[in-house]
Design a protein around this nucleic acid. Sequence first.
DNA 1: CGGCGAGGTTACCTGTAGGTGAGTACCCTA
DNA 2: TAGGGTACTCACCTACAGGTAACCTCGCCG
Lengths: 105, 105
Amino acid sequence: MAASGIETALRMLEGRWKMVIIFHLFDRGTLRFSELERAIPGVSQKVLINQLRELEKDGIVERQVYPQVPPKVEYKLSAWGEQMCPALDLLLEWTAQRPQGNAET
Amino acid sequence: MAASGIETALRMLEGRWKMVIIFHLFDRGTLRFSELERAIPGVSQKVLINQLRELEKDGIVERQVYPQVPPKVEYKLSAWGEQMCPALDLLLEWTAQRPQGNAET
DNA sequence: CGGCGAGGTTACCTGTAGGTGAGTACCCTA
DNA sequence: TAGGGTACTCACCTACAGGTAACCTCGCCG
């Protein structure tokens, strides 16, 4: 069943903050951990790291560590991660086409 | 931030069985409750109903009740629900393009 | 009469995602 | 010497999605 492929995709995208992270990275290119922290006020360190790790292991974002005196770690979308954006756009379009504002009552 | 639109979409699609339901309905058109139950062996009644109700309230599936002697209820994708399929296809394509089989180790 | 199948509802339990708060190693600055 | 910034880790707690199992109504079949 074709659902399995999409389920895989959805699994990778699911997580309270992943989309937010992805959009920030798409928007600003490369961000340090602390920059992400500041860019996304609602998220806790633990969860942010968690979601970043998952995105990394799924190959969506890349993590670059600079072995410096004060640690420095940069995150950015992988090439493949960027390729996801058209799909997200289409999904966005689809939600926009929702008939008669079924905003939740 | 545009993420919010996609988060909405993701919220509607997220749920262990929703994609499976959607694919079955897309594939076979219209299905009765018991047909769905049989088509998706892993799901419990409670959860199946639950996900159907959510899909219905999000306007993705339509529910048709026939007030018959033994109850009969049919589910099918709404027009809008069917319009989601291209987006899912694109997502599917994207997952297919994943570089060097990062199947989870 | 007893049981089945339809499409549910209800009560209860569990696993896990997410949140909170603290601690850590290291160096720099004041 | 105290405190701050960086990128984390660890222990603990809670909420909720999902799973399990029993029950319900109504008619028909045997």
